[in-house]
């Protein structure tokens, strides 16, 4: 018996020491999660493109649109006299507005987010010369016109934005870089003091 114990230790120790290490929690997670992490994008990607195609599918509409590429936006259009601003077209999903507008000497940090209103029979919005509204994304213009005395209501973010009334514009070409600053966001009105009065469900 005295000899058996050292013999057992002599046989068992290398088996324990040389056994392959148990998988750690992190390594098991990565191996299991990686297929999950990779599969959904591949499953989603086609649906996104399908949606995109579905939205942009040509439909019979009476809207008259030009078919010029972005580079062919008129270099100058409408009334280009008087005070001017530098404007950069910026598109934010589900957000009312055209982009950023600033004075010549100001930095883009000082720019104002505006909703753009054309002047009938004088100057339409620049993107109306293009096949799609997104085609002049990140393009710069010199705008001629004024800020409106009224604001526009942005329904998704529930806020008011400034309105620029466009009388004329000059194309300045693509911007050097995209403006990544988010447009302003604050509630259109104060706290709802009637919020404590919950709506009554209408029973049929």
């Amino acid at each position: 018996m005295g000899l058996l114990i050292p013999l057992f230790v002599w046989i068992a120790m290398p088996a324990v020491c040389l056994a392959s290490p148990l998988p750690t929690r992190s390594s098991s997670d990565t191996t299991e999660a990686s297929p999950q992490a990779t599969t959904p994008p591949s499953a989603d990607e086609p649906s996104e493109t399908q949606d995109d195609e579905e939205v942009r599918k040509p439909v019979e509409e009476k809207v008259v649109r030009a078919t010029l590429p972005a580079a062919h936006t008129p270099a100058k259009h409408g009334d280009t006299n008087g005070e001017s601003w530098i404007a950069q077209r910026t598109m934010v999903d589900d957000y009312c507005g055209w982009g950023w507008v600033k004075k010549d000497k100001e930095s883009w940090r000082q720019a104002r987010w505006v909703a753009l209103e054309g002047t009938p029979r004088t100057c339409p919005l620049p993107h109306t010369f293009l096949p799609r509204p997104v085609d002049d994304k990140n393009y710069q213009y010199r705008f001629f016109g004024t800020f409106a005395p009224y604001r526009a209501y942005e329904p998704q973010a529930d806020m008011w934005v400034d309105v620029f009334i466009l009388k004329g514009f000059m194309s300045l070409g693509p911007a050097k870089e995209e403006i990544r600053r988010p447009p302003p966001a604050q509630a259109s009105s104060g706290v709802n003091r009637f919020a404590d009065r919950a709506p009554n469900l209408l029973r049929p």
Partner: peptide, 11 residues
């Protein structure tokens, strides 16, 4: 009159 919004006098 403005893309995706409505003017203040008209809401």
């Amino acid at each position: 009159r403005v893309d995706g919004g409505a003017l203040e006098p008209l809401v």
